[in-house]
């Protein structure tokens, strides 16, 4: 009975985190992006600096009519948002935020493979949406999504493999237990590759070709309205949280910090994740969208060689230490 309660409590907490943190990131994006462009951003909803803007947006989305195009493949069209969103929920389950046993939703032996595999599944949602919408812009968006995923999954995996080699384990808490501060300069190239490839996999600007609004309206999500559209947006922000959390855990040492590791390790994790989320927003504001061929070129001619070089470096250092 106690075990059941424990599992239920963990699930509830993870679900709450999953519902709240992406909204916090979204609100931060509203405000940071506004100020980076010399604007104020939302100011009314909720009274104080528009803190409840996303809640209001959610209410608005819930009120909208849920339209399914006449020619669409109904069932797949309606299933796609869930397929896009659920994997991120599962990934958050596996990210450890503190050193103790209770600070992770579920310890998974092959943690790296789990998170990368499940994140890859999330893209299936975009593909299904793109195909099932019976809209040529949606189809183009789906195609671009697929091409982008195929190109960026590889450098992401290679960069993660480099960390796994360094730690000698593929379990996320295991990697953090093995972490030393000098891994930071050692794995810095891998960290950059992982972060950039993750951004591309999430279709965040400047890698937002699949939803390029000036070219293909909103890509795979063109035909969506109401709550289903909101779920896609939520998936994007949950993806940011997951990517930043993973980069923190794999490359920035998670709960390790200059001081206060024992009791306040989770603060370090959250702090690093928050800084990375800020960087994600910062990059979105700063850079224009890449063109499709530039996107592919970046993946195949820059990121993959860099990731391979990182693996070679990791191997050499590892052998030298032993």
């Amino acid at each position: 009975m106690n075990d059941v309660l424990d599992v239920a409590l963990r699930l509830v907490i993870v679900f709450a985190v999953f519902m709240v943190v992406p909204l916090v990131v979204g609100q931060a994006e509203h405000k940071v992006m506004a100020h980076m462009q010399g604007r104020l951003g939302p100011m009314y909803a909720g009274g104080f600096h528009g803190w409840a803007q996303l809640v209001a947006d959610g209410v608005k989305f819930a009120q909208k009519e849920d339209v399914v195009p006449a020619d669409a493949d109904r069932r797949i069209f309606q299933l796609a948002p869930a397929v896009a969103l659920l994997p991120y929920l599962l990934v958050i389950l596996a990210i450890p935020i503190g050193p103790s046993e209770g600070a992770v939703g579920q310890v998974i032996d092959a943690g790296i493979f789990f998170v990368l595999a499940v994140m890859g599944v999330g893209v299936l949602g975009s593909l299904m949406a793109g195909w099932a919408s019976a809209n040529k812009f949606s189809l183009l968006g789906g195609l671009r999504t697929a091409a982008q995923l195929l190109a960026y999954e590889l450098p992401m995996l290679l960069a993660a493999a480099s960390v796994a080699m360094a730690a000698g384990t593929v379990s996320l808490p295991g990697i953090l237990n093995a972490f030393e501060w000098w891994w930071l300069p050692w794995q810095i190239v891998g960290a950059l590759v992982f972060f950039v490839a993750g951004l591309a996999e999430l279709q965040r600007p400047p890698f937002d070709m699949p939803v390029a609004d000036s070219e293909i309206i909103f890509g795979a999500y063109t035909e969506y309205t109401g709550l289903r559209f909101a779920l896609f947006l939520l998936a994007e922000y949950a993806g940011i949280v997951v990517l930043c959390g993973l980069t923190t855990v794999l490359f920035l040492g998670g709960w390790h910090g200059p001081f206060g590791e024992d009791g306040l390790g989770w603060v370090w994790t959250l702090l690093k994740t928050g800084v990375l989320a800020f960087v994600v927003i910062w990059l979105r504001v700063t850079y224009p969208r890449l063109r499709e061929d530039q996107l592919q070129k970046l993946a195949w001619t820059t990121l993959i060689p860099l990731a391979l070089a990182q693996i070679a470096l990791t191997g050499i250092v590892k052998v030298a230490i032993n």
């Binding site: 509203h30 951003g41 609004d213 000036s214 070219e215 224009p288 969208r289 063109r291």
Partner: peptide, 10 residues
């Protein structure tokens, strides 16, 4: 030809 930044949900 850099494209304009996305302005969807800001």
């Amino acid at each position: 030809r850099p494209a304009a930044d996305r302005e969807d949900n800001s």
